[in-house]
């Protein structure tokens, strides 16, 4: 799901940067409005590291293989910190491992970061009624983890399909894109389960971690 350099035309890359900058600004503003903006920084730093490393965990889904994204998990647990965390994680992935690229950093931040914010909004629904109802936390955790991957794949496909270069054989490339999208369906389930396990663990061990979110 990381788009490398040289795939997107310049206006799309620039647009990606613009949207990513706006989302970062909005997230930081929301963080600044908190009582103690620094409180959640340690959590965000650790999950940035998890996001950074997660892209190496490959899950073979024949005929392709996909890797963990964890953007839904970051959104659910970090709230507005998720977007800056993902931008930083993507930056390190791009400069150190050429996974993604610097010109497409904005576009990739949109692809993975905006769904993280969506996951945050989904997981926040638990505040309606009993906040720590076990079933509710589990279901919302699963939904935020899996839907974030789903939305990411949807944005990824939309960006690619609207920017197919003319020298490519379009039907072949589209088939490849759809195949990649289908390969992500199991990943949605996997990330949903991972997010559920983590939020249930936090709920049992130290629910205060999720207080600020």
């Amino acid at each position: 799901m990381h788009i490398p350099d040289g795939i997107l035309p310049v206006p799309v890359s620039a647009g990606g940067y613009a949207v990513a900058a706006a989302a970062t600004w909005y997230s930081l503003r929301k963080i600044n409005q908190k009582e103690n903006p620094r409180e959640d920084v340690p959590k965000a730093a650790l999950l940035t590291a998890a996001f950074f490393v997660a892209s190496w965990i490959h899950i073979p889904v024949p005929p392709a293989s996909v890797h963990l994204v964890l953007n839904g998990l970051l959104g659910a647990v970090l709230g507005y910190f998720a977007f800056p965390a993902i931008v930083i994680g993507l930056f390190f992935q791009a400069v150190m491992f050429q996974h993604g690229g610097l010109t497409t950093l904005g576009a990739n931040a949109v692809i993975m970061g905006l769904p993280a914010l969506a996951a945050h909004y989904i997981f926040r629904l638990r505040n309606l009624g009993d906040r720590w109802n076990r079933t509710k936390v589990a279901v919302l955790g699963f939904l935020s983890g899996s839907l974030a991957v789903g939305i990411s794949v949807a944005i990824f496909i939309a960006v690619l399909l609207t920017n197919l270069p003319s020298q490519l054989d379009a039907p072949t490339e589209m088939t490849a894109i759809y195949a990649l999208a289908i390969a992500h369906l199991p990943l949605m389930g996997i990330e949903g389960v991972i997010t559920t396990m983590l939020v249930l663990f936090i709920r049992r061990v130290r629910p205060t971690i999720l207080d600020g979110v």
Binding site: P42, A45, L46, A49, F52, V53, F92
Partner: peptide, 14 residues
Amino acid sequence: MAVCVVWGSVGTAL
């Protein structure tokens, strides 16, 4: 390289 980045994050957290 990955360990360095992770350690940077842990350091930030600490």
